[in-house]
Each structure stands twice: as structure tokens, then as C-alpha cells.
Amino acid sequence: MTRLSIVLLAALMFSAMYLVKVQYESRQLVMQIERARAEARTLATQRRQLEVEKRAQATSLRVERLAHDKLAMRPVTPAITEYVTPGAARPAPAGSRP
């Protein structure tokens, strides 16, 4: 009887210690997940920010201004466009109906 008690006590002690260890490990893992989640959120917001910045660099206003001022470009008109019909043997003359 005494021997059984000692074995059970040892088992109980082991189980208790193991519980503490598992609890500790689980908390460590939760912390890691938290950290990873926070990083994911930061990266997602950064991505949004960068998307906005990229778009701000390519707004019609900016493109128009740069094309006009820096590259001396002008808007396209049908008069300076050659329209090509896909599959046609020869390109249609400028300005004509495809």
C-alpha cells in the first residue's frame, strides 16, 4: 500500500511538473504567434502605404506635367495616329475607318 502511494505521488509530481512545463511552452508559442501577427499587420499597412505612394507618383496630373514639361510631349490626336486593323494585310491609311 505504501509503495503504491509512493508511485502515485511520484506520478502526480511528474504530472504537475509537466503541466507547468507545457503551460510555459504554450505561453511562449502564443507570444511567438503574437509577434508574427503583429509583424504581418505592420507589413500589410506598409504595403498599403507603399501602394498609395506608388499611385501618387503616377497620377494623371504628374504624368501630364512631366510629359509636357520634361519630355515636350503633346496629346495624341487622330491626325497623328495610324490606325491598324488586326488581321488586315496592310495597315489602313491614317485617320480612316478600320
Binding site: 491626325a79 490606325y83 480612316s96 478600320p98
Partner: peptide, 8 residues
């Protein structure tokens, strides 16, 4: 595409 003839 334009629908009128244009002087290129």
C-alpha cells in the same frame, strides 16, 4: 477609332 476622315 475615328469615324471621320482626318488629314494626317
Amino acid at each position: 477609332p475615328p469615324d471621320m476622315a482626318v488629314k494626317p
